[in-house]
Design a binder for these strands. Structure first.
Length: 719
DNA sequence: TGTGATCAG
């Protein structure tokens, strides 16, 4: 039965006829539900734009190792391309397909399993399709097609430097240009040019935009100085290495010739969207959006929901009030208007409301951040209103901190937003800016690697044996200053040696699912002198998820929160307060959700904390097989916990109280105030450490704990 | 006395 499956047929000549078999009735009667479902799906697969390109794509990959495929949403590339390749003679191993987001990896795997008539993941050893995302590895030994997040493949590359179990890596959604995708592309390019693979490795790079030239140029041009060196002796957290790790041989790399890269374009499927611009620029986009929403609602026929792109939570909630007010005053002959906000911090249940059908005679208006641009598909939308702005992360080398700024979006972002109106029928897009302003927008959004703190990326490169990170093959190289800042940071953390080589600590930190700073703190906690691993992991878990404390926007809510959380507050500061919260939650055995609600703590955030905690404890097992559980009321324990943080923050995140009663940072002697959300707010202690420095109405330190200056020598004096 | 686009390990 296995061999009858068209996608497993190893006889590619017969394949076309089997796929096209139009008389499945006799098979259907005798086949399992999975096979019936597969047969039903075949027709819709055959209608996808990419279907007719199957032969072409397979031929191209027989002749070339690299294929750059551009295709818009709806072309079917993410589901069909991996299936096309399964029967190729070079495809003896697995096919990896990377995705930027977990939900995408999971839903694609589910869909492809159905199409292939295969059980999903670990449910059966016969499963051909699986997925792997953080906290959820759903694969079986027989998995041939594996959907996984970019971060998961990066982790796999640290453990198995040549990706020996794969015959093909498909990198999807490259146009989003996450830091992880940029690293992956560089690592894959190095791997291809290293000549380290025993069997061929095929690479398919897929992008929704037509930036095919830069991608094919990237892969076809050999690196001037192939980077092959590095000390990769074992220093693992897992201790399960079998394969070599990176490019550790001292032998010279094989000389590289210019690679042949094949390129291919597939049409998407999209209904037409009519564009409208403002004649004159507006000063007040909120008002312009309000007018546009009401006008659309009163003039355009039903059905047809409206999706409005805005910058952030606050402005969305403001507009929501205005629209609801005005819509309430409309004459009764108009349909009703249901306003739904959408942003990531919104509780899950509230986010779900956008998928529910509106009551009869009601039009939905969804006011969204750019979450609706890529991460969430809102159904029923025929009208898009675009303010042309978004909050964008920026990194400032000199201050060494990331901040969010409202900035104009790029052309490709604007076009993506517009496309959201044409998913189900023809639609319209109203841009709340002029056509001239559109013309002046950047073509693409600046890749994240040019806008962020690079210490994590650089550490990963070092852990893969890349010694000269300045000549790493980046699709768009970050500037030298940002790279040097990251190297310095890693050196201060003690993850690199003076000569820039990664050390044992660095290799261990690189494998933890944390920033280098937080990873370093965890390692410190495992040292026998500190011996407070479990306690520090609880705190670190909180710092690596969203805020566990429910936001308090009114005076009343603030008082209520203060009251509800009073038993959790620790006078030493926010770190020990977080620890108290996790310990209380974890020891709650009856109803954790209720406990969270009672304490005005986000249950969803706490569930994430528990997942991260479990993962970190498992990963740290080799560091400290039997960690002691400490009494957290013991002063020595408290001191040890905070000293671990001191080790990770070194001079960056410390401030001391000056005679003028203000806190000044160690590093820059800058005045910094304790944030009102801190339990230490308003208190004066000799010195503090803090998790982050933010500049809003003034310079604030958030996540603050009291320390003693005499501790510094103990922490900095030792290695 | 005040904040937060989004995603990933």
């Amino acid at each position: 039965m296995e061999n009858k499956s068209p996608n497993n047929a190893h006889d590619s000549k017969k394949r076309k006829r089997v796929d096209g078999a139009q008389n499945p009735r006799s098979q259907v009667q005798s086949q399992s539900p999975l096979a019936v479902k597969k047969q039903k799906l075949l027709q819709s697969r055959q209608n996808l734009p990419i279907w007719s390109r199957q032969r072409d794509i397979r031929n191209r990959l027989r002749e070339h190792d690299i294929l750059v495929l551009s295709g818009e949403t709806g072309s079917g590339k993410s589901t069909q391309l991996p299936q096309f390749l399964l029967a190729e003679s070079w495809c003896t191993g697995k096919i990896a397909v990377t995705q930027p987001r977990r939900v995408a990896a999971i839903s694609l795997a589910r869909r492809v399993a159905e199409e292939m008539g295969s059980p999903l993941g670990s449910s059966s050893p016969a499963s051909k399709v699986g997925y792997s995302v953080r906290f959820d590895d759903n694969t079986s030994p027989g998995t041939k097609i594996k959907y996984l997040t970019e971060g998961m493949l990066l982790q796999e590359m640290l453990r198995d430097g040549t990706l020996s179990q794969y015959s093909c890596v498909v990198v999807d959604e490259v146009h989003e240009r996450s830091v992880d995708v940029d690293l992956l592309l560089g690592f894959l390019k190095q791997l291809l040019e290293s000549g380290k693979r025993r069997k061929p490795l095929k690479i398919v790079v897929m992008s929704a935009t037509a930036d095919v030239e830069s991608l094919s140029e990237f892969f076809s041009t050999p690196m001037t100085k192939p980077e092959v060196s590095g000390d990769t002796s074992n220093g693992t957290v897992h201790g399960d290495d079998e394969e070599f790790n990176g490019f550790s041989d001292s032998e010279q790399p094989t000389p590289v010739e210019k690679k042949q890269v094949s390129t291919c374009r597939v049409e998407g499927r999209q209904y037409p969207v009519k564009l409208h611009y403002l004649d004159n620029p507006t000063e007040d986009v909120v008002d312009a959006a309000l007018q546009r929403i009401l006008h659309l609602h009163c003039k355009e026929p039903m059905p047809g929901d409206i999706l409005v792109f805005m910058t952030g939570q606050e402005i969305i909630q403001g507009l929501q009030k205005l629209v609801e007010e005005l819509a309430g005053n409309l004459p009764s002959e108009y349909p009703r208007l249901l306003v739904l906000p959408l942003f990531a911090a919104l509780p899950q249940a509230a986010q779900q409301r956008i998928f529910e059908r509106a009551p009869p005679n009601t039009r939905k208006v969804i006011l969204s951040t750019n979450i609706a641009e890529t991460s969430v598909t809102v159904p029923g939308v025929r009208y898009v209103v675009d303010t042309g702005k978004a909050k964008i992360k920026q990194y400032r080398n000199r201050l060494g901190l990331e901040s969010l700024l409202v900035k104009p979006i790029s052309k490709s972002s604007a076009d993506q937003r517009k496309g959201r109106a044409g998913r189900e029928a023809a639609g319209q897009c109203f841009r709340l800016y002029t056509q001239q302003s559109y013309g002046e927008l950047e073509k693409d959004t600046k890749p994240e690697i040019l806008r962020c703190d690079l210490s994590n990326a650089v550490l990963k490169m070092k852990a893969r044996g890349v010694e000269d990170v300045l000549s790493f093959p980046f699709l768009t190289p970050p500037n030298r200053e940002a790279m040097e800042k990251a190297l310095l940071q890693l050196l201060l953390l003690g993850t690199l040696n003076e000569d820039g080589k990664i050390n044992d600590i660095g290799r261990k930190v690189a494998r933890l699912p944390l920033t280098p700073t937080l990873g370093r703190i965890v390692l410190e906690a495992a040292r026998p002198e500190r011996d407070c691993l479990l306690e520090v992991i609880d705190i670190i878990a909180c710092l690596s998820v969203e805020n566990i404390f429910q936001p308090t926007d009114t005076e009343e809510a603030r008082e209520k929160a203060l009251e509800a959380r009073s038993q959790l507050h620790r006078r030493q500061g926010d770190h020990l307060t977080l620890l108290a919260a996790v310990q209380a939650y974890a020891s709650e055995t009856s109803d954790r959700k209720r406990w969270a609600t009672d304490h005005l703590i986000s249950h969803r955030a706490m569930q994430n904390v528990m997942n991260v905690r479990k993962q970190l404890i498992a990963q740290c097992k080799p560091l400290s097989p039997n960690p002691t559980i400490r009494s957290t009321t013991d002063e020595a324990t408290q001191e040890n916990i905070l000293k671990c943080f001191l080790k990770g923050y070194h001079s960056n995140n410390i401030a001391r109280l000056c005679p003028d009663k203000t806190y000044k940072t160690f590093a820059g002697n800058q005045t910094v105030a304790i944030h009102p959300s801190s339990v230490l707010f308003g208190r004066k202690v000799e010195a503090v450490i803090y998790n982050e420095f933010v500049f809003t109405t003034k310079a604030y330190a958030r996540g603050v704990s009291a320390i003693q200056l005499k501790w510094l020598e103990d922490v900095w004096g030792s290695s």
